[in-house]
């Protein structure tokens, strides 16, 4: 019953100048088939000029339960933003 081909994640560049964006996933026997299925499944209306496929199992992701700890260190570093610094009004172009 459970004889699925490998799961691939599909990323598409909508047009040159843009980054590839995750659009979904599909099953395929190999990488070439994954590309061809991605073409048929996700670009029937010229949605892209380039496709990446990557086996889902090869992607590592952070754990949402750990998001607090993971992203917390950035929260108190407001000095990384330009608005942290007050500059007198008469100073221009800065």
């Amino acid at each position: 019953m459970n004889e699925d081909w490998a799961l691939y994640e599909v990323f598409i560049r909508a047009r040159s100048g843009l980054e590839h964006k995750h659009v979904g996933s599909l099953h395929a026997a190999d990488a070439r088939m994954a590309l061809e299925h991605a073409r048929d499944t996700y670009t029937r209306r010229q949605e892209g000029v380039s496709i990446w496929v990557v086996r889902s199992i090869d992607i590592l992701a952070s754990d949402p339960e750990e998001a607090g700890e993971l992203f917390e260190p950035a929260r108190d570093k407001v000095y990384r933003h330009p608005t942290f610094y007050s500059i007198p009004e008469e100073v221009k172009n800065i």
Binding site: I57, A61, E66, E69, F71, P73
Partner: peptide
Amino acid sequence: PGLKFLYH
């Protein structure tokens, strides 16, 4: 912190 569990 936060990298204890990297998973698929």
